[in-house]
Design a protein around this nucleic acid. Sequence first.
DNA 1: CGAGCCATGTAAACAGTTACATGATTCT
DNA 2: AGAATCATGTAACTGTTTACATGGCTCG
Lengths: 197, 197
Amino acid sequence: MSLRYALLALLAAEPMTGYDAFRYFESSIGYMWHAPHTQIYAELRQMERDALVSPEDVARGERGTKRRYHMTDRGTTEFRRWLNEPLPPQRERDVHRLKAAYYEWADPAAARTQLREHASVHEQRRAEWERLVAALKAREVPLLQYRLDKSPPEEHDAIVRFKVFAYDGMINRATTEIEWARTGLELMDELYGPEPG
Amino acid sequence: MSLRYALLALLAAEPMTGYDAFRYFESSIGYMWHAPHTQIYAELRQMERDALVSPEDVARGERGTKRRYHMTDRGTTEFRRWLNEPLPPQRERDVHRLKAAYYEWADPAAARTQLREHASVHEQRRAEWERLVAALKAREVPLLQYRLDKSPPEEHDAIVRFKVFAYDGMINRATTEIEWARTGLELMDELYGPEPG
DNA sequence: CGAGCCATGTAAACAGTTACATGATTCT
DNA sequence: AGAATCATGTAACTGTTTACATGGCTCG
């Protein structure tokens, strides 16, 4: 149930509506955790019941209102507790490696296409994360700015560097994926000869 | 729904019972896909309904019987189809990076413990996978042997090398995790000073 | 005034986990 | 005889996805 903590991470920087959270899950924090809006609204209601967040009704135009959630003290405590506790052991579940282990059943051309696509997807993600890391280092990311504005200046360096550390980890993982896919393409060449064309 | 294809991968090598599959999911293939026995038995029944596998009742001692599943032609076709099709785009969901991005909220000692544990877990997994890769190269893995026994000798090299390629990928990923965790420990030293003791 | 975004849901289905349960076989 | 392993489930629950739905606001 990490969605809850991903939401607390957002609300720790800034009060926001479910829709705001949904938007963030499509960009910055969404690279680490994703959820559809249906799950976000439901989870925020749950968190409200558990007193981790409290809603505030905000006017929207003439007639409308929206619910903006604030993190409560209980929410802060719970977020810290999660950060201090080790995660339960994670089971490996790696569908790309699973498939690759049985590529002798596949059409070599189809396997090659998939490996190229794998490299390409991770190249794009890596490029995106590299832009984000640069923006974090320059402190140009709005969410980070809100967070810094609420923190004493002597903590700013640590706050930025943990975020950079995390996204650098994503970049390293992407690089490993790209190299793996390229090794796979070389293996295909070796086993079936280089591609025609 | 990759469980279905992980099961087909097993049954492609050798007919087996749900229990056998469950055992494999705790060792070799289980490093890539895991499932509890409850899910395995249910999925095999589903696959039977979809005619991907066919059951055979096998005597077991005096009174007992067990259900051994065989892959059908339809199962083979479906397995190949899955291998030739690209996977739907995967959402990132990386709880370790998510946590690390907010370590400024954690007790530094707790964060250090988690990073050390992270490195240690992946060191152990890597060691296990390295043993498995060595055994695959030596063709000492029983499941691989069954598979080779059913295949023409000119395909043996490819069969072995795809499996080695896949598990090497797991090893590379583990290495990336270990390096990332060590970078994190260095960052902690830099931010909060080296650990006492 | 229409398109696109803002904003929030319900409901059904699917995937995966956990607790509970049962009985046979094999090994010591 | 008892323990460990083989063998197969049911049921409840949690987490996640997908389809469907509705209405207000903003900008051109």
